[in-house]
């Protein structure tokens, strides 16, 4: 009898779990507002990307054309495939102190896998992931980018 009871309860529980799954897909089938597809080229204007979508690495500049990069190369070391190359220079501050500073932040987009490790490694939050994803160009060399804007310098107080 115990065998029969487990047998029947197996069938009952199996059927119940299957029906539960069907209820969910049935709900999605009947509720069109749940659809998450974005019809990309048509909706360029009102397209909404997920918050954590990663398109490319950018360096943040404020209105004074200042960034927060100290040239510490933590991102360069963190990068698993050599996407980032940082060239530093020695700057002399007005009070005569010599200090290492960023000269050029070279970013090879064609090598980047958007793994986010450089952003996590950055101690001063100078770089972040942008959401731009339309990267296609006709020449490969255009993918090698210079992330710090010309004439930019490090923000005061960032060490």
């Amino acid at each position: 009898m115990a065998f029969l009871r487990t047998y029947l309860s197996d069938i009952y529980h199996g059927a119940r779990s299957l029906l539960k799954g069907m209820k969910l897909t049935g709900y999605y089938f009947t509720h069109r507002k749940e659809i998450i597809t974005q019809q990309y080229p048509d909706n360029k204007a009102e397209m909404k990307l997920p918050e954590r979508f990663r398109g490319e690495v950018v360096m943040l500049h404020d209105e004074n054309n200042e960034h927060a990069c100290t040239g510490c190369t933590a991102c360069e070391l963190a990068c698993p495939n050599g996407t980032i190359k940082i060239i530093t220079k020695i700057e002399t501050s007005p009070d005569g102190k010599k200090k290492k500073a960023l000269d050029t932040f070279i970013y090879h987009l064609e090598l980047c896998t958007m793994c986010n490790l450089c952003i996590q490694a950055c101690p001063t939050d100078a770089i972040k992931m942008a959401q731009n994803f339309e990267h296609s160009v006709y020449d490969r060399s255009q993918l090698t980018k210079n992330l710090n804007k010309p004439g930019s310098k490090i923000r005061e107080g960032v060490e």
Binding site: Y28, F29, R32, E34, I35, T37, Q39
Partner: peptide, 13 residues
């Protein structure tokens, strides 16, 4: 179409 709607997609359109 059915598969698309059940997977919250649009399907061929």
């Amino acid at each position: 179409k059915v598969s698309a709607y059940m997977q919250i997609r649009l399907g061929p359109n």
